[in-house]
């Protein structure tokens, strides 16, 4: 699954550690999600969407 997390985080000028603290996960988990190595669960994906104030489908996109 592709995502725009890195771009959205950069727009807010947050580091991975900042985003990890907002989401209450480890920094490595933020890194893994950004690189597409780990797909978050639905609750975590909703948490990310709420944090950025965007619909979930504008952040996460299914691989073609």
């Amino acid at each position: 699954m592709k995502n725009r997390l890195k771009v959205l985080r950069a727009e807010k000028k947050w580091t991975q550690a900042d985003l990890a603290a907002e989401l209450q996960v480890s920094r490595q988990t933020v890194n893994a999600i950004e690189k597409g190595k780990f797909d978050p669960s639905l609750p975590l994906a909703f948490k990310i969407a709420r944090l950025f104030g965007l619909p979930i489908e504008t952040i996460f996109e299914e691989d073609a």
Binding site: K12, K13, W14, T15, A17, D18, A20, A21, E22, Q24, V25, S26, R27
Partner: peptide, 16 residues
């Protein structure tokens, strides 16, 4: 400027 101040990651403290 950052949109938020860096808050402590309670998750990492709890994990440790």
């Amino acid at each position: 400027m950052k949109d938020t101040t860096t808050k402590p990651n309670e998750y990492e403290a709890r994990e440790k």
